[in-house]
Amino acid sequence: MKSLLKMTWMETKLFLREPVSAFFTLIFPLVMLFIFGSIYGTQSVPGTDSTQGAIGTLIPAFTAMIIGMTGLMPVTITLATYRENGILRRLRTTPVSPLVVLAAQVMVVFVMTGLGVLLLAIAGKVVYHVQFDGNVFSMAGGFTLCSLSFFGIGFILAGVMPNARTAQIVAMVLLYPMLILSGAAWPRELMPAAVQKISAFLPLTYVVNLLRGLWVGESWGTHLLDVGVLVGMLLLGIIISVKTFRWE
């Protein structure tokens, strides 16, 4: 327990010392919010059936974006680099359990993602007086499920890819189209029908669906498909990442 706390705290400091990941998790979503906010203001995005202002649609979408980015980039890169550089090798000579190493990573990225989302929500509230019709606990639960199941993808990539470079490239190749096509960067309704069909195959789509639904106060029951997919991903992620974990 002591080692888990120490390790999590250490990894948090290292995360914040890495300017790129800190920027994309904490700052970039805010920048996106301000750009879109200055375009649409408090109107709804034209072409969506949302009764909410644009910001109310964008915050859950950008939350999905943060989850997608942190799940694929820092998780994958950190773990793959640690393995490649022999950092895990050094850890292996100590009594520390691999579960502690994995858990510390999960906690750090989870907390950082949460922080990014919190900043986003505060900015939405303070700057745009965004309307929130959901339940805070329900939203937090949805966020937790989405984050954890998405981190699984990062862990799997880190475990399966031969080296850090490949892991990073594969993560990027997966991430960018997914951000655009899943509706995390802008509402999916604005995209052609054919493109919308593709999005059904992207895990991030289910994150966007669930979070947008919970934001406007829909019940979990109306999102069984999304929840099912995400829980499946979570279980798969845990099993595969523990199975594929290698010290070197």
């Binding site: 390790m7 550089n85 022999g86 090798r89 050094r90 000579t93 100590t94 009594p95 520390v96």
Partner: peptide
């Protein structure tokens, strides 16, 4: 054990490494 090939994270400070590894024992 001191290994021929191993590393610590680049941005980890000397005292932090010692402090972290202490918590493992």
């Amino acid at each position: 054990m001191q290994l021929q090939q191993s590393n610590l994270p680049e941005r980890m400070k000397v005292w932090e490494a010692l402090d972290l590894y202490t918590s493992f024992y």
